[in-house]
Design a protein around this nucleic acid. Sequence first.
DNA 1: CTCGTAACGGAATACGATTTCCCAGCAGCG
DNA 2: CGCTGCTGGGAAATCGTATTCCGTTACGAG
Lengths: 374, 374
Amino acid sequence: MVNPPLPGSCGTPVHNSGMEDGSAAPPQQHEGAAAAQRQATLHDVARTAGVSQATASRVLNGSIRNVRQENVAQVLAAAAELDYTPHLSAQAIARGTTNTAALVVSGVDDPYFSTVAGGATQAAEAAGLIVTMAVADRSPERELQIVRTLRGMRPRAIILTGSRIDGTDTRAALIEELDAYRRAGGSVVLISQYDLPFCTVSIDNYGGARQLARELVGLGYRRFAVVRASAALRTSRDRCEGFVDGLREFGIGVEARLVVEAEFSRRGGLAAGRELVRQGLGDTELVIAANDVMAIGVMTAFRDAGLVPGRDIAVAGFGDIGPAVDVVPALTSVAVPLRQVGLCAMELALSNDDVSRVVPISTNVVLRDSTPRR
Amino acid sequence: MVNPPLPGSCGTPVHNSGMEDGSAAPPQQHEGAAAAQRQATLHDVARTAGVSQATASRVLNGSIRNVRQENVAQVLAAAAELDYTPHLSAQAIARGTTNTAALVVSGVDDPYFSTVAGGATQAAEAAGLIVTMAVADRSPERELQIVRTLRGMRPRAIILTGSRIDGTDTRAALIEELDAYRRAGGSVVLISQYDLPFCTVSIDNYGGARQLARELVGLGYRRFAVVRASAALRTSRDRCEGFVDGLREFGIGVEARLVVEAEFSRRGGLAAGRELVRQGLGDTELVIAANDVMAIGVMTAFRDAGLVPGRDIAVAGFGDIGPAVDVVPALTSVAVPLRQVGLCAMELALSNDDVSRVVPISTNVVLRDSTPRR
DNA sequence: CTCGTAACGGAATACGATTTCCCAGCAGCG
DNA sequence: CGCTGCTGGGAAATCGTATTCCGTTACGAG
């Protein structure tokens, strides 16, 4: 119970570390502050090794030029002794190129994004890049601002995933920003949901949902409810449309009353589930959610209301995130190879094709206990 | 079904974008390659605006010096026209300091780490820093290598979370590396599990587990099994010790046979659960796992074996990650305010105290349906 | 022995910013 | 009118590294 209940602050203890005012200045540096003992530079290494900077540079990096064995040893010894670490920013400037890739996600907490991020990170590290990640929190303005900042790092690639929302006026600004970045030689890759003139790894949300509808009808279901997110969210919209179109193939419609909209999160699913319970499910047999976490929220809401998911009412989601199988009953879903999506996006970005291409990623219906055969 | 089944590659389509060999060189640049249209530099902006570089710099960044209103307008107009973005690496060099914070996690996929990362990212962005993230994949060697690379970015802080494993010989090297970084003015913060001479945000694993033991005994449980990870993993060990010590208060012991070791992941939990089922649980009433994801795996294994968790056998975990409440029965666990841990770590790092301090984070037992009163 | 050439070391310059230092102009004041 | 203090602009130094260009040496071929 040490921590204060205030969220957003960890209550760092006060830390008057001695002197009251600036009187007794720290001994070494004249600047006050941290009195940091300067990092060794290439110059220092060269001097210690008794060679020129150029030689030191050639030794310590993959230069084409050869250096005499003796000098190599000297330089390496000096570098080890001084604990030299090359200054990446300086290298970036001198070389005119960085070894950085940038990743913009909507939120790290969501397993969807963290899985994609995992794949992208793996691909980046395999290529010797270090990845910088920013969280847009589903705000287009924030996303725009992030891209603007990220551009300053001159990363080799910028990968955007998730938070694009249709119809905001930041759209044009974002396009402009990304395009300027691309003109300057960077590569941009979007992951699904975006609808912009850039390379895109496109998850087949529509097709997967449509196939899901077919298979559910095949299991004997006829009466459906839909839990979806705002129509402005491309992913949610595509999935719902696919599902509805799939049902239509069999002449099945969904009552408008039974389509509820909520946040694209577990909490949203919970709320939607409660809403459905409140207004009465009628003879609805199955609820499909635009999202696995929403579906899980819906199941919890139903269970709280005394309905047993999978027996009293079936539920299906989309995404096949890890927890989908841990939940009871295990959730029927549409598998999206999220890790591969991340990998693919990064590889696509690093292959620097100048042509904007769309790489389709197919999805895969996975039937589980939450939708038993009727 | 477009994607080839090969993992690790997304099968980027071939892309002969026209010319067969290097004959028809791109028009603009003499270098071949991307023919990128150079990013505008401060120099360009200054020239366009008809002022000196110094003035342009003063306008475009928070300088102390004033600039005449007229020139300000000129410079801003020029910057907008040329779509100027300051080169962060150049700024870093000139200023001698970056606006970057580094975060090392064991894996983004694990909800534990991604939640911590979320908190840390939030705090960093609030402070105007951009965070670079690296994934160590539970390998101490990889972690060491990452720290080495990260140091080259001269981040303001390096935060390490999770993958420290006792007894490897990389330990000394890691300490040396981090210490050199700190000597050079960086701040290091470790999150729990580490046992190194640096600032640490310490999660009270031992105390939480001990309290959990007390409360479970209070519910009427007497016979326990333990699923834990390698003893080399500090977190797992602390939790197990706390739990065992808590039971000992009541004179209760745990049979060595009923302590099984497995990977610190959902898969490990699944394996451990199967192992317990195989060798027979005897009259065991409750299984505690070192980890929520392990506990969830154990529950799944039990269910597969026809045991109903919460009725036939109780299960408890540690961490209280999001999915703990979505699972059925909801999992009894020990809540760790992970997001706050991340926030706290970053704030601690940014407060640049030179003193190594340990900030304790208390934990909180949460009883749920997976451990009904007996 | 001479010449051509390959190998390698080092001085200098470039990279894109910030910051110091100097200088011009101007207002205020005795 | 001369001096001081202040404001704001610009030239140049600086940050840490890569790389170009030039000079020296060594070596093998003729």
